[in-house]
Every structure is written in C-alpha cells, then in structure tokens.
C-alpha cells in the first residue's frame, strides 16, 4: 500500500468511527454527549443505559457487519464475474432466503398458524431459521452446480436463474395468500437492522468475520483474476478452488445477513465502485480493506438517516441505502469520467 492509500485508509477509519459514535448518539431518544461515557459503562440502571446497550449498540454493530459483509461480497462477485453490475445477490442466495420467509409467513397461514405468524417481529428466530434454510438450500445448489462448470459466466447465469425461479415461487405464494400475510412478507423485504439482538449477534458476528478473514487470504488470486481466469492459471493460481472459495464465502455472508436483516439493497454493488474511485486502484490488497471500511461507514450513515430527524419514525433501511447511495455513486461516476478514469472492475 502506498502512502496516499495509507492516508486515505486512516481517514476512512476516522469517518467510520465518527459514524459509529453518531449511530449510538442519534435516534428517537437523544443521548446527551456529556452523559455518553458515563452511560456506556453501564453502572447506572437507567432507560438510557438500556437503550444504549440493548438497542443502539447491537444495531450499530449489525450495521458494521452488514455494510462490510455486503461490500466485500459485491467486490468478490464483481471480480469473479468481471462485471461491474454484479453484487452479493447475483447468486440467488437472498432469493432463497426470501423463499424460506415467504413459506413461513404465507404458506403456514394455510395450515392454521395465522395468529402466530402475524405476530412475528423482525429478527424472530422462526424467521431467521426459515431464511437461513432457504439460503442454505440455494447455496448448496449453486456450489454443487458451480463445482461442475468450467466458466464463470455460466455460474452467473445459473445464479440469476435460481433467483428468478425462487422469486416466481414467492410470487405464487403471494398470489394465494391473504393481504395480512403478504403485508408481513413485504415488510420483511424492506430490510431492517434493528431487530438484531445480542443473541443474534453471537451467531451472526462469527459467521461474517470468518467470511471476511477468508476473503483476505484470497487477495492474491483475486488480483490475478483481474487479468482473466486463464491468465491467472498461468500464474499458478488454482482457479477452480479459488472460485469455489469465493462462492462459498459470498453465500455464507449474504445468507447469514439476509436471514437476520432481510435483503439490503445497493451497498453491495455500490461500495466496491466507491472504494475503487477513492483509492484509484483495483488492487485487492487496498480495496478489500477499503470496501470493508466504506461499507461499514456508509451503512452506519444510512442507519443514522433512517431515524427521521426529530420524529419517532424509522424508515426501512432499503429505501435509505438506495436514496443515499444512488446519488453518491452517480457523483462518483460523473466525477471519475471527467478525470478520464472510468470506474469499472
């Protein structure tokens, strides 16, 4: 990493820490900055301590896990498929998760489970397990198929087909369900990071961190893939094992995240472009940590803005990520075009 990248990286770390602090302080109940350090020690048994420890902190940590995980998955997919539009969801894993949730929320109402289903809050273990089951199913299918295929583009096509097929099943379920169930399901598809509790984090955090750590081991093969898969092989890279590792990590991270937070739009596709533009490089040794930081920071920022200022309303996180993220990406594209550096993979 050169000097400029190092400086920018430090600035990103600072910005992410600021966003983290901001996410803890802002919300429907304002935490006074002066009381913050006293409250965070947790000696005092007040409402504010409870809010900080049981609501704000898990939510901020989830934002970091989701932001960094989705950004890294997007980067991995864009590099593997050499396609700037690829994102964490192209493998169809999140569609598998929504199929699981749709089955739980809508199909179970046909068997008299209505009362139970309608009261399911976000982050309920029933939802989590249903989503994980769906994600796992598609993940196994994708891995099994991709182990047999020789080229990456076929895997992309098959991932998208899995997505469409599961999406169609979900549509059929919606068509035959009562409005309440459909509403419940649609709310789930908006995504939310506020339903994640400490006990969820105990499972989610190790899964995501493992995925991120393994992605760091892959930085050299990822760089080689930038030259094309065949050229990477001539550099001594075992392309099939690397591809399998990339797909497994992406499935693991997106599956786990979707199970706990629902699908979160935009971050995965946009952040790698943002990182490439900020650091002016495609070298994974730089943009991998860069994407983690930018993803965490952006997700925290979106979460702060989701608490509509001066009100008790919370916007669905999906709308915020797209509303905030799209203008940022448009600005980045226009700016870098002007500098004659386009920002594709």
């Amino acid at each position: 990493m050169d000097k400029r990248s190092g400086t920018v990286m430090l600035m990103l770390v600072g910005a992410t820490l600021l966003a983290f602090a901001g996410d803890l302080l802002f919300g429907s109940v304002k935490v006074p900055l002066g009381d913050f350090f006293r409250l965070i020690q947790g000696d005092e048994n007040s409402n504010l301590t409870y809010i900080l420890w049981q609501i704000r902190l898990p939510k901020a940590l989830t934002a970091i896990l989701a932001g960094s995980g989705l950004a890294v998955c997007g980067l991995l997919m864009q590099t593997l498929f050499r396609n700037p539009l690829a994102g964490p969801y192209v493998l169809g894993i999140s569609s598998g998760a929504s199929l699981g949730v749709a089955l739980l929320v809508m199909a179970s109402s046909w068997f008299g489970g209505q009362a139970l289903v309608h009261s399911l809050p976000y982050g309920h273990w029933g939802l989590v397990i249903a989503a994980m089951g769906g994600a796992l199913l598609v993940m196994l299918l994708v891995i099994m198929v991709s182990a047999r295929l020789t080229d990456a583009v076929s895997i992309l096509i098959i991932g998208i087909m899995f997505g469409s097929a599961t999406g169609a099943v979900v549509n059929v379920l919606q068509y035959f369900s009562d409005p309440d169930s459909v509403h419940n399901f649609v709310v789930w598809t908006f995504g939310s990071i506020s339903g994640v509790t400490w006990s969820h984090l105990a499972l989610l955090a190790p899964l995501i961190t493992t995925g991120l750590l393994v992605s760091f081991i892959l930085q050299k093969p990822l760089n080689a893939i930038l030259l094309g898969e065949n050229q990477a092989r001539t550099l001594g890279i075992r392309i099939r094992s690397v591809r399998l590792a990339i797909i497994t990590i992406t499935s693991l991270i997106t599956g786990a995240l979707t199970a706990f937070t629902g699908p979160i739009a935009f971050i995965g596709v946009a952040v790698p472009h943002l990182a490439r533009a900020i650091f002016q490089t495609s070298d994974h040794r730089v943009i991998l940590p860069g994407s983690i930081l930018a993803g965490s920071g952006l997700m925290l920022l979106c979460d702060i803005l989701a608490q509509v200022p001066a009100s008790n309303q919370i916007l669905p996180v999906n709308t915020v990520t797209s509303l905030i993220g799209a203008p940022i990406l448009i600005w980045v594209v226009i700016r870098s075009r002007r500098n004659r550096n386009s920002i594709q993979t």
């Binding site: 050499r82 050299k220 760089n223 080689a224 930038l226 030259l227 094309g228 065949n230 050229q231 001539t234 550099l235 001594g236 890279i237 490439r276 002016q280 490089t281 495609s282 070298d283 550096n341 386009s342 920002i343 594709q344 993979t345």
Partner: peptide, 25 residues
C-alpha cells in the same frame, strides 16, 4: 510463462502492479 490473446480490460491498475503479478508463482 504465457502471454495469451486476452487484452487488459482492468481499470485503475498500474503497470507496476500488473507486472509484479509475474512474481506470484
């Protein structure tokens, strides 16, 4: 070492970084 017909279509990668990939093996 092989030089294949594929062209360089990766953006934002310096000549030095690209050539240093030759050291990967």
């Amino acid at each position: 070492s092989l030089v294949l017909t594929e062209k360089i279509d990766v953006k934002n990668l310096t000549v030095f970084s690209l050539v240093s990939m030759g050291r990967y093996p």
